[in-house]
């Protein structure tokens, strides 16, 4: 049963990341390949706060989200200066930089060996240790994220973001600030990624840089491609489908080293196949 709940919790955490990536890449059209870096900062900060300063879990996650709001604004700012293709390169650089920090700052992150012993969340005298218990928290977090996403997409803010994706110049000609809208979207994406990080660190109780590297960022993009861009349903289904894959591979009796390689192979094939044959993903729109 833990096996099942672990899958649910991880998928729900990745839904928050899917919302974050979809908002930035799918909706605004800022092609970021460094969302895992922001996710990582949220995870490490929450771990630090609860381990070193005994900050309560919810406060730690909130603070991590706030830091990631600022951080995500900072890392997406270059997209306002350099256009499309060039931003991907910039964003790539940001991701590499983050990985270098996560791996080498042994004092803060435990370096490549990782950071063990992140305590399970305590809320109102209750400890959420078992995956089935944690699932309650993760479901709550995912629900809040989905509601927020749904609300902005049906509000004029969502309409403004869609318009910006189509034609920034036309938006400016209608008296709207493109800069403000993009910064707001980046802030929201940062909040999603930061809180996902906090949940992730507390759930696994062990984090290391491999969860927040370039592969992880590309995995987040794969979720959006497979799930579908710009829709809530797409952001939810992508993580559930992709995270089912390692679970299924684990059920088949093959060595774990082979399974890991097979997983990468299948993710790669899925990415290519969807881009070529179903660019709108399972339940979304064309990226």
């Amino acid at each position: 049963m833990d096996f099942f709940y672990t899958y649910i919790v991880l998928a729900e955490i990745y839904v928050l990341l899917g919302l974050s990536t979809n908002l930035l890449v799918g909706i605004v059209g800022i092609f970021s390949v460094s969302q895992a870096a922001v996710f990582g900062v949220g995870a490490y900060l929450t771990a630090f706060l609860v381990m070193q300063t005994s900050t309560p879990f919810l406060v730690a996650v909130l603070l991590s989200s706030i830091l990631c709001i600022g951080l995500n604004i900072l890392v997406t700012l270059p997209s306002l200066r350099v256009s499309g293709d060039y931003f991907v390169v910039t964003s790539f650089g940001i991701q590499l930089l983050a990985t270098a920090v996560f791996t080498n700052w042994t004092g803060g992150t435990g370096g490549a060996n990782g950071l063990p012993g992140v305590p399970a969340p305590w809320i109102a005298g209750h400890e959420f240790v078992e995956p089935s218990e944690f699932a309650v928290l993760a479901t709550g977090g995912m629900a809040l994220g989905c509601i927020a996403f749904w609300l902005i997409m049906r509000a004029p803010f969502g309409a403004l973001l869609r318009a910006i994706r189509e034609d920034e110049l036309a938006v400016a000609a209608l008296g709207k600030s493109v800069l403000r809208a993009k910064v707001s979207a980046a802030a929201l994406a940062g909040a999603f990624a930061g809180s996902a990080g906090g949940l992730y660190a507390s759930f696994l109780s062990f984090i290391d840089p491999s969860s927040f590297d370039l592969d992880a960022s590309i995995f987040l993009l794969t979720m959006v491609v497979v799930g579908g861009a710009r829709t809530l349903a797409g952001s939810v289904i992508g993580p559930f489908v992709l995270l089912a894959l390692p679970q299924i591979l684990a059920l088949i009796d093959i060595p774990s080293s082979v399974a890991a390689a097979a997983r990468q192979l299948i993710y790669g094939l899925l990415l290519i196949a969807f881009m070529l044959f179903r660019p709108q993903g399972l339940l979304g729109e064309k990226l």
């Binding site: 803010f157 969502g158 309409a159 008296g175 403000r180």
Partner: peptide, 16 residues
């Protein structure tokens, strides 16, 4: 609608 000014909820805070 995109041309109209002063929308309520044209930023995420009010929208949410």
């Amino acid at each position: 609608l995109a041309g109209m000014q002063d929308h309520v909820g044209e930023e995420p805070f009010t929208a949410i």
